[in-house]
């Protein structure tokens, strides 16, 4: 605490400091008011890998996502952050039509991937979900051997004709997921016997085994300890060289660490999107500022 003597020096100004802080009138970095729900920042990039335009999602009558337009750039990690129920996971699930599995869910708007709207009825979701893979919050390996966990997808998508090709895919995927050295001697053992962090990396290996272009991650580290988390984050940075990644996370530090761009969602609106560096040092919307600094609005 400040001592009495020190206080005496600062006393006069302290009363100033405690007075109303709304004196500043210049257009500082935070410009957008809490009530304004227009997206600020830079939601679009020059050569998007996936581009969503005016996406709305309804669960029965409930309007869960309002008119979200956002791009995923090539070889970038886009972090989506926001409080629970803000629609970030729902939006993520739109990107490979996982919401189709929810009966009450309706999605409108355009999501372009490889020049086609993925919501078009012509699109076959099975190859789509191979191209846009997903990693979930809780590691969910198949109740099969480690080898089969990886080989399964490659086999059903017809990526390997011979056993040796399959072996190559399994080894390559495990290596890229940073798991090979830990499991190479026990490929026939069940995947469920691995530790949580290893299981999650197995799931990532399984996703990349079918050569996706985009990987969606829904809180991939929230069930993991800090060491396993650090390994996954390291892996995400490595995978970025080959894939485009969108990650939903509750950890703002994680978003700051792994992503190049960040999107902040609030009650179904995309509030702000842009450079991770900008969002975390000089956000342009008051709501983003409130959330990342831990304030209530």
């Amino acid at each position: 605490m400040v001592t009495a003597e020190e206080l005496a020096y600062g006393m006069e100004r302290e009363s100033v400091a405690k007075g109303p802080l709304e004196i500043f009138e210049g257009g500082g970095q935070v410009v957008t008011d809490r009530d304004d729900r227009q997206t600020v920042g830079e939601p679009f990039v020059d050569n998007p890998r996936v581009s969503a335009r005016n996406v709305n999602v309804y669960y029965d009558e409930k309007h869960a996502i309002h008119d979200v337009s956002l791009d995923l750039g090539e070889n970038e990690v886009l972090a989506m952050i926001g409080p629970s129920g803000c629609g970030k996971s729902t939006f993520l699930r739109c990107l490979n039509r996982m919401n189709d599995t929810v009966a009450s869910c309706r999605v409108t708007g355009k999501i372009n991937f490889d020049g086609e709207d993925i919501n078009s009825p012509k699109i076959d979701v099975v190859p789509l979900r191979a191209q846009v893979g997903m990693v979930f919050q809780k590691p969910n390996p198949f109740p099969k051997s480690i080898y089969e966990n990886i080989a399964f997808g490659a086999r059903i998508h017809g990526l390997a004709r011979h056993r040796y090709e399959l072996d190559e895919i399994v080894e390559g995927s495990l290596q890229r997921a940073g798991l090979w050295d830990e499991v190479k001697d026990r490929l026939e053992q069940p995947g469920t016997g691995l530790s949580g962090g290893q299981q999650q990396r197995l799931c990532i290996a399984r996703t990349i085994a079918v050569s996706p272009e985009v990987i969606l991650m829904d809180e991939p580290c929230s069930a993991l300890d800090p060491i396993a988390t650090a390994k996954i984050e390291e892996l995400i940075d490595e995978l970025r060289k080959q894939f485009t990644i969108a990650i939903v996370t509750h950890s703002m530090q994680q978003a700051a660490r792994v992503s190049q761009r960040t999107a902040y969602f609030h009650l179904g609106d995309l509030i702000e999107a842009g450079d991770t560096k900008t969002v975390f040092t000089t956000p342009r919307h008051r709501l983003t500022e409130d959330y990342i600094t831990g304030r209530f609005g």
């Binding site: 605490m1 400040v2 020190e6 206080l7 020096y9 600062g10 006393m11 100004r13 302290e14 400091a17």
Partner: peptide
């Protein structure tokens, strides 16, 4: 707030 007050106190001392 405590931190800011300390900076102001330090500033006051330097001014003195």
């Amino acid at each position: 707030e405590d931190l800011r007050n300390k900076v102001l106190a330090m500033g006051g001392l330097v001014e003195q």
